[in-house]
Simulated assay, not measured.
Amino acid sequence: MHGYYFTDNQTTDAKYSHLSSLTRLLFGLFCLTFASFSDAGTDQPTGGSYGLALDPVPTVNFVFLTPSNTQQQQAKDIIQHSSILATIKQLSQTRYIFAPSVDIVFGSDTGPNFDLTQQQIQIPYQYINQLLQQITTTGAYPTQQQRYQATTDALLLTLLHEIGHAYILDRAIPILGSSETTVDNFVVILLLNDIHRGDEIAINAYQIFSKQALNNSILSNNSFIQQHSLSQQRYQHIVCLVYGSNPARYQRVFDSLSLTQRQQQQRQCRDIYSTTYAGWLYYLDN
């Protein structure tokens, strides 16, 4: 049998020399094994788990149909040069995760609406042009950049509204009460917690869609507006959520109300927001 052994004739130094050689051999084998293991690369733990550390995959897809005229091309350009697509994509990775994915089709003949059979949200170019025209008519936005920003804010709210309907159906979320109020809550919670300028978008865009603002406007005959136009009660609920999210910051949002109404809203809105936020985060974080 091969191996290391020592006779009485071997000196102590020799014994230690053999042991030292053996130790170096074993240590070398260990280092070689460890190096091979380390070179495995993608199979190593990353952040406490095995496998590749990949970014979440977006669960919405954007489809742009070919514009048929210059107005439609302008609508397409407004979308593509805004931050809307990046915002919707980011939220689809972290908040509303669809499986299978949902298509958002720009340039459709009908809409805005969510088509369950085709699993797609449809947004006509004409609708975007109507938003721009309505916003221009108000005279509240003197520069083209401001008008485009207001248009994309209103369009973002529209998209989140239809995504809300799709998400409720996808997750079979129970609706106890008005479906439109439930979706309004979904939209405002996302705007306030996940989107830059979300509070401003919530207040301004919902004002654009209020019945008073839409009277005799080009948007008033749009099917989306006819189905979803906001009553003053719904608008006050939106403002209440915004106030309840940060009473110190939004203390002036009820200035137009009487003192009694203002005090009542201020007492209630913090609790309304807290309940709404907790309810939606139960679904959006799972």
Rank of each mutant, 00 (worst) to 15 (best):
156 L>T: 10
71 Q>Y: 13
241 L>W: 09
266 Q>Y: 08
228 H>I: 04
77 D>T: 14
157 L>I: 06
117 T>I: 00
155 L>T: 09
18 H>N: 07
220 S>N: 11
81 H>A: 07
21 S>L: 11
191 L>H: 05
11 T>P: 05
187 V>A: 03
107 G>Y: 00
3 G>H: 13
277 Y>M: 05
265 Q>V: 01
260 T>M: 09
89 K>L: 00
76 K>P: 02
131 L>A: 14
129 N>V: 06
177 G>M: 09
31 C>T: 12
276 T>H: 04
85 L>F: 08
97 I>C: 04
11 T>K: 10
106 F>K: 01
201 I>T: 04
76 K>I: 09
138 T>C: 01
149 Q>W: 11
122 Q>S: 05
124 P>F: 09
178 S>C: 14
20 S>W: 12
186 F>I: 06
53 A>Q: 11
230 L>H: 06
286 N>D: 08
151 T>A: 11
14 A>V: 06
40 A>Y: 11
34 F>D: 05
86 A>H: 12
253 V>F: 08
42 T>W: 09
258 S>R: 02
131 L>F: 10
266 Q>E: 14
268 Q>R: 12
148 Y>T: 08
49 S>I: 14
172 A>M: 05
49 S>F: 15
76 K>N: 13
142 P>M: 03
172 A>F: 13
62 F>L: 03
25 L>R: 08
68 S>L: 15
204 N>Y: 07
268 Q>C: 03
44 Q>R: 15
169 L>R: 14
67 P>Q: 12
16 Y>Q: 07
38 S>V: 13
122 Q>W: 00
147 R>Y: 08
245 S>I: 04
167 Y>C: 01
282 Y>L: 07
268 Q>D: 11
126 Q>Y: 07
237 H>C: 02
210 S>M: 08
274 S>W: 00
271 D>N: 14
48 G>Q: 06
188 V>L: 05
170 D>N: 15
60 V>D: 03
138 T>D: 14
139 G>I: 06
237 H>P: 01
67 P>K: 04
138 T>L: 08
135 I>R: 02
52 L>S: 10
44 Q>L: 15
31 C>V: 15
198 G>W: 12
73 Q>C: 02
52 L>V: 10
176 L>S: 14
241 L>R: 05
188 V>S: 01
162 E>I: 07
186 F>R: 02
260 T>A: 14
206 Y>D: 05
161 H>N: 11
80 Q>F: 10
199 D>G: 01
234 R>Y: 08
177 G>E: 09
1 M>Y: 12
270 R>N: 04
105 V>R: 01
3 G>I: 11
152 T>M: 04
201 I>L: 02
